[in-house]
Amino acid sequence: MSASTVRSLSARAVVRDRAMTSSSRASALRGVRRARARAPLAQPSASLASDKVVVIGANGKTGRRCVEYLRSSTDAKEIVACTRSGTYEGGAADDRVKARAANVASASVAELANEFAGAKAVIFAASQSQSGGTASQVDRDGVITCARACLRAGVERFVIVSSGAVSKPASPVYIFLNLFGGIMRNKILGEDAVRALYFDRPGQFYTVVRPGGLSEDPARGVSALELNQGDEMSGRISREDVAAICIESISREDAANATFECYNWDAAKPLGEVGLSNMMKATNDGDGVQKTGSERRGSSWDELFAGLRADAPGEKQQGEGFTL
C-alpha cells in the first residue's frame, strides 16, 4: 500500500464514517471540551473493574509488560493477549488472561473487530520484526486496520505505542531509527491515519504514547516520569513504565485524543542531544535543561496526565520534510 493510497483511504474513511449532523457534531465537541475541563478521573486503575482489555503484540517486550501490568495492577475482568501464534509466553498463570491469534500484518478489519468486541480498550504494542512483518505492514497498515476494527467494535479507547522523534525527520534519532525498514516514517503515517479516522467519533478515542529510548530496567514509577508534547524532548524510559503509562492512560480523560512523549524526567534532553545522552545513560537535575512549556510531572497518575492537550481534530504531525 503506497503512502498516497493510505492518505486516500483515510480521507474516504473520514467521509464514510461521519454520521452526525452539523448541530450534533457541534454539541459533541462542546461535550468533549466540558469533559476535558473537569478534574481527571480519580481512581487509578479502578475504572477497569469488570472490563476487557486487549493487547496487540503481547509476546513482545513492551506488550508482555502491558499484559503483566494489567494482571498485577488492575482488576480488569478479561485480558486478551493477542499474538501471531495464539499463545502467550509471559507471566504466571491467570484465568483472566486469554491468548488469541491475531496477526495484524494480515488480519482483516472484520476478524479483529470480532476479537475486540466488548473491549473497553485495545493497546497496540506490536512493531515490525523479522518474523512478524515489515514496518509498512505492521506500524502503518496494522495500526490502521486495528483502528478501523476498534471503531467498528465500539471500543472506547485505542492506545498506540509509537516512538519519540517520530514527527521530526531531520532529528538524529529519527534518521538513525528510520534506517531499520523505514520504521519511523511508517509509524507517523499510521499515527496520522488514526487521527483522521477518529475525527468526529463521540465516545471513541485514541491515545498515542511516544516513548524515548527503551530500557529493560525495572520500573521507576510515576514520580520519576515526565510527559511532554510537541516532540521536542526525549530521554530513557523503562519498558515497564511505558506499559504502566499505556494502561493508566485508558481511564484518563486528559489522555483522550492526545499524543505525548514519555521519558524519565532526569534523562530529559532535546532531540539533537538525546541519542548520545541515552547511550551514556546520563542524568541531570533539571537545571539548564531546555523547557518546552508542555512538561507534565506528578506524584500520582492523575497529576501526571492532568492538562494534556488534545490533538486538533484530524491533525497531521508528519513534520517538515515529508511528502505524500
Rank of each mutant, 00 (worst) to 15 (best):
L197E: 12
G307C: 07
K316R: 06
K316L: 12
G212Y: 08
V274G: 06
D311H: 00
R309V: 13
N178M: 11
G181C: 04
A267Q: 11
W265T: 06
M184P: 12
G293Y: 02
K316C: 07
A282I: 03
E315T: 00
E248Y: 10
A267I: 07
G230I: 01
E191R: 10
Y263G: 04
I250Q: 10
L308P: 05
S234Y: 14
D266F: 14
V289Q: 00
I183E: 15
T259V: 14
G307R: 03
T283E: 06
W301F: 10
N178T: 11
Q290P: 01
E232M: 03
G298S: 04
N278H: 14
L271S: 04
T292F: 05
R296V: 07
F180H: 10
E253F: 06
D302A: 07
G221W: 03
P202R: 11
C262A: 13
K281A: 10
A219G: 13
L225S: 09
K269V: 11
L225G: 10
G230F: 05
R185E: 15
N257A: 06
C246T: 03
M279W: 12
V208T: 13
S215Y: 08
D285F: 01
R297T: 10
L276V: 15
F305L: 11
M233Y: 03
S277M: 05
G221M: 02
G213S: 14
S251K: 01
D266W: 15
G221A: 07
R296K: 10
G293E: 01
E295S: 00
L225Y: 11
F205L: 06
A224N: 05
E240L: 06
S223P: 10
R297V: 14
S294M: 02
A224M: 05
E253Q: 11
E226R: 01
A219F: 07
D192T: 04
L189D: 08
K291S: 10
I245Y: 08
T283Y: 09
E240H: 11
D231G: 09
